[in-house]
Write a protein that binds this DNA or RNA. Sequence first.
DNA 1: AAGCAGATCAACCGCCCACCC
DNA 2: GGGGTGGGCGGTTGATCTGCT
Length: 349
Amino acid sequence: MGRPPCCDKANIKRGPWTAEEDAKILAYVASHGIGNWTLVPQKAGLNRCGKSCRLRWTNYLRPDLKHDNFTPQEEECILELHKTIGSRWSLIAKQLPGRTDNDVKNYWNTKLKKKLVNMGIDPVTHKPFAQVFAEYGKISGLPIQNTRNNICLPNNTTEISKQFPFSSGTPHDKFVHNIMNDQLQENYSTQKYTWDLKPQYQVIHEETLQTNSFSEVSPLISSATSFNPTVFSSSSSYASVQSQVHTTACSSSTSTWNEFVLGDLCTSTDTEQKQEYQLQAGIYLSKDLSSSVHKDNPTCGEVTEVEEKQSVEETTCSSAVDSFVDTILARDKQMLMDFPPLLDLYLDY
DNA sequence: AAGCAGATCAACCGCCCACCC
DNA sequence: GGGGTGGGCGGTTGATCTGCT
């Protein structure tokens, strides 16, 4: 019946390894090679679990391991592989000689993830947050509250966390939700953005900021079916995203995240398509904000029949804005009544 | 110098699957 | 065939380090 237990967990040593213990493992491997790790503690004279010995060897003692900092090339490799295969750390580590899955994982969690977030890129999907947000609105079944035009940013930014209707509760949902709030709060006050990663990521970030338009991102949104990183395989690299975004890029070169979020209504050159996207995504446009953007943007000065028609629709939609906000507030209130502890957790995140 | 918060990373946890008995 | 384990893996924890006030 099965194998015997590898060790008596109650009586084994745990915690940090001493130099003496390391020396015993090294000596054992030098004379016996790597074999059955369950026998290593006994044969090497260690009061450790075999599994712990294996981890110590593979993550720290192996002679082929590199213990210096990650190079830019390694960093780029991790980013590319993570974009393609997600958090398969062991597979990623196999492409980086001298690095372990634990090394890569730690480096990702402590450095790269933050860098991507600072660039406005979702580290899970490797898509710009703008796109992720738009998809959330679409997936949630709720009409997207246009984050460019109608996001209802309050004076008190602590209220922001209550403004976004989409968070279905998964860790990633919460992560995105949290990041979104952080970004909005940060950029609402600082309006600054920096990046220091590879050019490929810089470009998409920069152009995402420049385009300032969800309606332009919509074609990408339409083609995306889930947040599974594998959906965005290497074939749908940032280069392709760049090219699509680039085709309609705005001429502005000094956009900030604040502008990106509040956005410019009239950057799309194809009004009908824009309308279609807006209708598809259920974007509610505020007439007042829309008209102010028209005024500010000379490229949108021409009023076509289509735009007139759109204006009527927007007028209709503006009344829907109120009802939408009311709906969200009502839902918030209902959630608070139904699940007070849950909501506390949600807001504390 | 002390206290604190954030960053880092080695080590552990818990799950899955192939394999053993 | 089925219960149990080892090995592999991704996620998480917590001790330690570092920098700031």
